[in-house]
Design a protein around this nucleic acid. Structure first.
Length: 126
DNA sequence: ATTTGCTCAGCTC
DNA sequence: GAGCTGAGCAAAT
């Protein structure tokens, strides 16, 4: 599976083609449960690619239903963009899932997941 | 809180 | 090829 290869670093995603990168981005985005969010840079760190490429994948190849693109936000907590219906739609979707967005368009720190620390956490245990 | 510099695939010309 | 554009980020101010 793609994720295993990431942990082994046997695949350099910076040199992989866009399609493979996108697959991996979607897989990681799908890990984020309802009511939580992650950031573009968190996904980027795991795959070893620039955060902007993560955004590019989400924007381009967007499978509307299967992939929860709206759960990926700026590292700062700001919501960021959304090509289907704009940022306001993204905010609505998140509110629907129980993520409160403050007046300045930011999500609370507690709901943000750092995917890379999930990967390291069980390797470090032994 | 805001500005600045960095980044890189894809699109245009 | 060169130049511009983003669903971004971190550091400095």
């Amino acid at each position: 599976m793609m994720i295993i290869e990431v942990k082994d670093k046997s695949v350099d995603f910076r040199r992989a083609n866009m399609m493979e990168i996108c697959e991996a981005v979607y897989a990681l985005a799908s890990l984020v449960p309802i009511g939580r969010v992650t950031s573009y840079s968190s996904i980027g760190k795991v795959l070893g690619i620039h955060p902007r490429l993560v955004a590019l994948c989400l924007k381009r190849n967007n499978n509307p239903v299967v992939i929860p693109c709206h759960r990926v936000v700026y590292a700062s907590g700001r919501v960021g963009g959304y090509s289907r219906g704009g940022a306001s739609t993204k905010i609505k979707l998140l509110e629907l899932e129980g993520v409160h967005i403050d007046r300045k368009g930011r999500v609370p720190r507690e709901v943000m997941i750092q995917l890379e620390s999930l990967l390291y956490s069980d390797a470090r245990r032994s």
